[in-house]
């Protein structure tokens, strides 16, 4: 039990961020009209591409001789970027169409 409390105390900040973000995530899209479900899904899809930052860190820390880490890290950067760039561009294309006829 103590170890759990220690762990919570140690990571207090992160736990706060997680809990508050959960509520925020739910609150922020609470009243989305069904018209926007597809673009919203696509936009959210682009945002979780933030995982690419992890890939960049992995890549940037890999030692020169460690080819497995280099190759896997490189792949991760490519795929993560695909997710980010593709996600935002596709969402923009969709939303561009909503705007045109205003």
């Amino acid at each position: 039990m103590d170890t759990i409390f220690d762990w919570i105390a140690l990571h207090q900040q992160i736990i706060y961020i997680v809990v508050l973000s959960v509520f925020l995530g739910i609150e922020v899209i609470g009243r989305v009209p069904s018209v926007l479900h597809t673009p919203l899904m696509s936009g959210a899809n682009a945002i979780h591409g933030v995982v690419v930052i992890g890939a960049i860190i992995v890549m940037g820390k890999a030692e020169q001789g460690n080819y497995a880490a280099l190759v896997l890290g490189f792949l991760a950067v490519v795929l993560g970027t695909l997710n980010v760039v593709g996600g935002f561009v596709v969402t923009d294309r969709m939303l561009e169409m909503f705007k045109k006829k205003k």
């Binding site: 973000s21 959960v22 995530g25 739910i26 945002i47 933030v50």
Partner: peptide, 9 residues
């Protein structure tokens, strides 16, 4: 970013 999308998704 991750948690927001997790919850909103």
């Amino acid at each position: 970013g991750g948690i927001l999308v997790g919850a909103a998704g």
